[in-house]
Design a protein around this nucleic acid. Sequence first.
DNA 1: ATGTTCAGTTGAACGTGTTCAACTGAAGTA
DNA 2: TACTTCAGTTGAACACGTTCAACTGAACAT
Lengths: 221, 221
Amino acid sequence: MGTMRQQRSADTRVKILEAALELFRERGFAESTMREIASRSGVATGLAYYYFESKDAIVLDYYRRALADLGPLLEPAHRSKKLEDRVIALLEAKFAYFEPNRRFLGALMSNAADPASPLSPFSEPSRPIREFDFAQFQRALDETGVSIPNDLAPHLAKILWMYQMGMLLFWIYDRSEGQSRSRQLIKRSIGMVVLLLKLSNLPLLKPARKAILELVAILEG
Amino acid sequence: MGTMRQQRSADTRVKILEAALELFRERGFAESTMREIASRSGVATGLAYYYFESKDAIVLDYYRRALADLGPLLEPAHRSKKLEDRVIALLEAKFAYFEPNRRFLGALMSNAADPASPLSPFSEPSRPIREFDFAQFQRALDETGVSIPNDLAPHLAKILWMYQMGMLLFWIYDRSEGQSRSRQLIKRSIGMVVLLLKLSNLPLLKPARKAILELVAILEG
DNA sequence: ATGTTCAGTTGAACGTGTTCAACTGAAGTA
DNA sequence: TACTTCAGTTGAACACGTTCAACTGAACAT
């Protein structure tokens, strides 16, 4: 395989992607134009659209790349045996990985916050990334031996995931030195979240659980 | 006051606003262009920008107008003596008022969902609308005699407001006949929300309350 | 060798939100 | 009445994301 043609094409794609990320880091997402991205890659405007469906699509590619990079980096976090510690370790690993692009991610939020935008973590294009993340928390729940009522099982990983998204969002916007406030927030909240998950196992709460599951059913249509 | 000049000017402003809302209702927000809005008002493109800072600003004006209209319409809802009933009545009054623009509001969400967008209910420009709404729920709490721990008092109205925003959001996207699913959702959830508010008054929960208040403090910076 | 094909590439053009220098005419001034 | 002013108005122009008809040249076929 690998003809010279294909090689050059792949190179061009990477060249464009990297010029774009560079610009995004320098100026933010909205402030970087496709013309600028193309010209910095030494390429015509149209070619950027040959390789990427849209400006948003470039960001989706960045997510994909991050997803791939993150896989191995998350492995050490899974050594923690307490659920609290593990969630914190997962978050710290992500903080470390995204640190260089924190500002750029912040600038992205004006698009990503809209659930209808492809850039949103809730969007259809983001599904693979999202499901990779669900799996992390599913694994954390399994391996730390938190006992879970059958009816709730599929939802608890989602709850942890949403908690993580909240912390990540806070971290992105956190302007305190070294994002210390984010760490403080996590330290003070993780216990509550885990407690809530464990409480859901109490037989006492079965009726409430049923009511909540009914709600979820309506919500999911 | 009221010279002919000023009258004509005010008329022009209204003419533009109404042409815009008409178009938004017909085609949605994103699909309506400023050129079209101007031309339908029989006016040059630039004049729309003389009266409205941006396309978004036209929508903000619509919010403002809705706010003014809604004041008296909400009064009957405040006759309910049970908190549950009153929240439902407030929601139904808003449903009724916004019904003709439900589709247009839906199309707006792709912008309004971003907390950084001026159109978001959480944005700075939306503050007056938001605070008017807070006040409704504050009043509902006061007048239905729900006893509230002092430390939580300022936050409970916000919780009800957020609940309302959630229901409104669901209603906007609700494609079921006459938005019956929204009503179902409200019927099944309002009890839980009110119960939660009342539980917060139990002395038993004081430590949890303190922990949560600390969290809120970190969140608000 | 020569011709064919089509992935890769170009840049002008489109439609958008928005800006701005210039114009108009009613209201105020002498 | 004649002059000044400036709120109200105009439409061409700008920068953007995106599209597209046309061109180029490596890979393959004959």
